[in-house]
Amino acid sequence: MFWMMLGVFGPILLIGFFFARRQDRINRAMTEMEHAPPETGYVGPHRPGPS
């Protein structure tokens, strides 16, 4: 019974953990960009402002 449950829910949990880890890495990178030193300059899309 344990192996059957593991076979059913194991892949779902693995996929969930994979995407949670990926999202955590993205969140950490975005936080680092927000706290970048001022000499880094503007990092982002270059779009014209309102005229």
Rank of each mutant, 00 (worst) to 15 (best):
F2D: 11
F2R: 13
W3D: 14
W3Y: 13
W3C: 10
M5W: 10
M5E: 14
L6M: 06
G7I: 02
F9M: 04
F9N: 05
F9V: 13
G10T: 01
G10P: 00
P11M: 01
I12R: 00
I12M: 02
L13F: 06
L14G: 05
I15H: 06
I15L: 06
I15C: 06
I15Y: 13
F19G: 00
A20L: 13
R21K: 11
R21F: 11
R22I: 11
Q23K: 12
Q23V: 06
D24I: 08
R25K: 13
I26E: 07
N27L: 11
N27S: 11
R28I: 08
M30C: 12
T31P: 01
T31S: 12
T31I: 11
E32Y: 08
E32T: 14
M33R: 10
E34S: 13
E34T: 12
H35W: 12
A36Y: 04
P37I: 04
P37Y: 01
P37S: 06
P37W: 08
P37C: 04
P37D: 03
P38K: 04
E39G: 02
T40Q: 08
T40F: 04
G41T: 02
G41W: 01
V43W: 03
G44C: 00
G44I: 00
P45G: 04
P48C: 09
P48K: 13
G49M: 09
G49V: 04
P50G: 14
S51F: 15
S51Y: 15
